[in-house]
Simulated assay, not measured.
Amino acid sequence: MNRLVEIRSQEYLCRERAALDTQRKGFWLSQAEEWEKRALDEIASHFRECNLNWSDLPSIPH
């Protein structure tokens, strides 16, 4: 999950930069969107891993 924190930090920096750099606002917002997509991919990957690990566990009879 450290990777997710790093990705979100980059996204935040790009959004902050967009607010300060009005001439290149569009560029910084598009960069932020790219980082946001990476964050969503990272989250999805984490959940896929968790689901694989759960499927390895033996079934518990009810």
Rank of each mutant, 00 (worst) to 15 (best):
L4F: 03
A19M: 08
E11A: 15
F47I: 07
E16R: 14
W28V: 01
W28C: 01
H62E: 13
N2G: 08
E16C: 05
D41Y: 08
A44Y: 05
F47D: 04
F47W: 14
L40A: 12
E33W: 03
E42L: 02
P58K: 05
L52R: 15
E49R: 14
A39T: 01
E33F: 05
A39Y: 01
E34I: 09
L57A: 11
L4E: 04
E6N: 09
A18N: 03
I60Y: 12
S9H: 10
E36K: 15
A44F: 04
L57Q: 14
M1N: 11
K25I: 02
A18G: 02
P58D: 05
E11V: 02
F27P: 00
L4I: 13
M1K: 12
L40T: 06
L40H: 09
E34S: 09
C14D: 12
T22N: 07
D21T: 00
S59K: 11
Q23V: 12
S55Y: 07
A19R: 12
W28G: 01
S30F: 05
A32T: 00
R24M: 07
Q10V: 03
H46G: 04
N53F: 07
C14W: 05
K25M: 11
H46T: 10
S9G: 08
K25Q: 15
M1R: 11
R17T: 13
S55W: 03
R8E: 13
I43V: 15
H46P: 00
R8P: 00
F47S: 02
R3E: 13
S55T: 06
R3H: 10
D56V: 06
E36P: 00
R17W: 03
E34M: 11
L57S: 05
L40G: 02
E42S: 12
R17L: 11
K37M: 07
L4H: 01
L20I: 03
N53C: 04
N53I: 05
R48N: 07
I7N: 01
G26F: 06
L57H: 07
P61E: 14
L40K: 14
D56C: 07
R8Q: 10
P61D: 11
V5H: 07
C14Q: 12
S30P: 00
C50L: 15
P61W: 02
K37R: 14
D21M: 01
N2T: 14
S59E: 15
M1G: 14
T22L: 12
I43T: 04
L40R: 13
Q31M: 15
I60V: 15
L29W: 00
R3N: 10
A18Q: 01
L40M: 10
Y12R: 15
R48Y: 06
E49V: 08
I43L: 13
K37H: 07
M1L: 11
E49H: 08
W54P: 02
W28T: 01
R3W: 05
L40S: 06
R8S: 03
N51Y: 10
Y12L: 13
L29H: 00
Q23R: 14
A18L: 02
N51I: 09
S45C: 06
F27H: 12
E6R: 12
E42K: 04
T22V: 13
H46D: 06
E34K: 15
S55K: 12
D56K: 14
H62S: 10
I43S: 01
E49L: 10
N2Y: 12
C50V: 15
L57D: 05
E49P: 00
N51A: 10
